[in-house]
């Protein structure tokens, strides 16, 4: 919308699948100018509506599980990687991912999220998150890692204004604009045993896995630890002797 060179891809996901919505599978629709809207916009709009409809109607299960958000972001990164590979040499592409989600935080995908975020950081992809419903601390970490913006929409009526204001400008322009101040990022990690966010925990000294309770054998790398005894008080005595 901002520049003729910009390209767009949209994906959707729920608890079962994540799918490309635009550009959709198969041939693009043959769109003719009908109501004065720019053809390409019409094409995007029609394709998105059609494919979203398809996804929503085929989804029948009533079992509630978490949305496969991490997987979808991974797919988006793959898409970006493919474009980067096929581009003409010498060309610079600034890519970014905007996640708009209404689902809750899912610590069960903690590892997937972190992998995705650090991959994005390595590839210089900015991840923005627009949370519609709940506060998402994991995704907020992701934004912080990749220099993206995290915003929880206070009023859903103002969604369009927020999207246009905060998420439309590209990262280089953002520093010139006054945007909502960054809130303190909650950098709590999820433990590997129960997938819960913890403040204080145990970290395996070999593989850096995080646990909320002490376990003698690390479940990730199978290192055996000694059971910690009570802390010894030895230094004081020595001092007196000397």
């Amino acid at each position: 919308m901002q520049k003729a060179q910009n390209k767009l891809a949209i994906m959707a996901c729920h608890s079962k699948i994540s799918k490309f919505v635009y550009p959709g599978p198969g041939k693009p629709l043959d769109i003719r100018q009908v109501d004065g809207q720019y053809e390409v916009f019409t094409l995007v709009e029609k394709t998105v509506k059609q494919n979203l409809m398809k996804i929503l109607t085929t989804e029948t299960s009533t079992v509630y599980t978490e949305s496969l958000l991490a997987g979808t972001i991974a797919m988006a990164l793959c898409y970006i990687a493919r474009i980067l590979r096929t581009k003409t040499p010498g060309l610079k592409i600034n890519s970014r991912i905007l996640t708009v989600t209404g689902s809750g935080d899912s610590a069960s995908q903690y590892m997937n999220y972190m992998n995705v975020f650090f991959t994005a950081q390595k590839q210089n992809v900015v991840i923005d998150v627009c949370a519609l419903d709940q506060h998402l601390s994991l995704l907020q970490q992701g934004c912080d890692i990749t220099n993206g913006l995290y915003l929880r929409i206070p009023q859903i009526q103002g969604l369009l204004q927020y999207l246009l204001w905060v998420f439309l400008p590209e990262p280089p322009v953002r520093q010139k604009l006054v945007l909502p101040p960054p809130v303190k990022v909650d950098y709590r990690a999820a433990c590997f045993c129960h997938r819960e966010l913890i403040d204080v925990g145990y970290v395996c000294s070999v593989c850096l896995s995080i646990f909320c309770k002490f376990s003698p054998i690390c479940t990730t790398c199978h290192t055996v630890f000694k059971i910690p005894g009570p802390l010894t008080v030895k230094s004081k005595k020595k001092k007196i002797k000397l």
Binding site: M1, R32, Q33, D35, G36, Q37, F41, T42, E45
Partner: peptide
Amino acid sequence: RNLKTALLGGGKPWSMSSA
């Protein structure tokens, strides 16, 4: 009005677009 039309539609078709 016309920028809105270009972005969102709802206007008259452009001159060269007849089917």
